[in-house]
Design a protein around this nucleic acid. Sequence first.
DNA 1: TCTGGGGTCCTAGGACCC
DNA 2: TCTGGGGTCCTAGGACCC
Length: 370
Amino acid sequence: MGVPFFKVKAIVDKYKVSVFSSNYTLYADMSRRVMQTLSEFTPSMEVYSIDEAFLDLSGFVNQDLDRYGRQIRSTVLRWTGIPVSVGIASTKTLAKIANRIAKRSSKAQGALLLTDPRYLDHALKTTPVEKIWGVGSRTARKLQNRQINTAQQLRDADDKWILKKFGIVGLRTVHELRGSPCYRLEESPPPKKSVTVSRTFGHRIESIQELREATASYSARAGEKLRAEGRAASVMTVYVMTNIFKDTENRYFNSVNIRFSTPTNDSRELVQATINAVDKLYRKDVRFKKSGVILDGLVPANQIQLSLFDKRERKESERLMQTLDIINTRHPLNPVMFGAEGLDKPWKVQFNYKTQRYTTRFDELLVVKP
DNA sequence: TCTGGGGTCCTAGGACCC
DNA sequence: TCTGGGGTCCTAGGACCC
């Protein structure tokens, strides 16, 4: 898991393993289809990530929930072709544990209802702490050093001690393990607080021109995201760095913070500020491997506090950006871009093994041969 | 040679106020 | 010689998630 291609290339060649580049357009569309299917099974649901959702089944307690779980799984499989696992329990943390077992156990076969206290106890006993939702590697090590190795042991730990050692976040996890919910269902996600666009380059960059172009194109993309969210940014951070996996060459990480006097989502302003920042960050003696822009202090775009004299410019900016976005979303090739982004984009990573975008592009439809 | 991208929350400490 | 008590806001860094 998470191994870079070059490290397993020999195995790939030897056993003729199929290789696929990531295909985010396809994933997003298949995710949408799965979520839509899931939403048929409950009046309230939280789309937690591209491949996970929490369904509120509190109105179904008199039903056979075990059967319902299996029905959810088989329906998603039939309608989308995607195999999913279903875990049902009294809190999010316990549902995640139920799901993990559902996925692995041949007896559960992809769906598990975990409410019977006896089974619950056994499930917690066989769940290592590092597999619990909310326990990362650092916390896991800390717990293990104190002889807490299973979810059951964590559940039975002392509240005061947990609060002191692991803070309010740790205590919430413990309470969730006991079956008292600390995390509610978030049906409509709150507006974003930050927007990031960053990329590793296809090759190392040494020229300031390439570094400018790459980073400028990330900021243009960040502007698009911002406008799609209906937000404007007060602060932008631009950073550049060398390859963190190599210590042979000159290591370098640096960033610049820019505060806009008026919050903006105008790509022209973002791109200009990015170029200025890159010029400050650039160094001749290092080879850059990654850069990125982060937009913070987001405010609703329609509530920007205008300064006294720039009203007309704002209106013009808004219409220009709107036009830009309309053209670029209607035409798949994103034909309108900034000169600062460059044309060749030699720093782009190649996706050599990418499949078609079967479900979202007419010119990439699956072809079935007779 | 070659190692992803995008987020959130919490806490401690500093600056500042009365 | 001896220098209080209580509070808010902001930021950076740590930890976590997918």
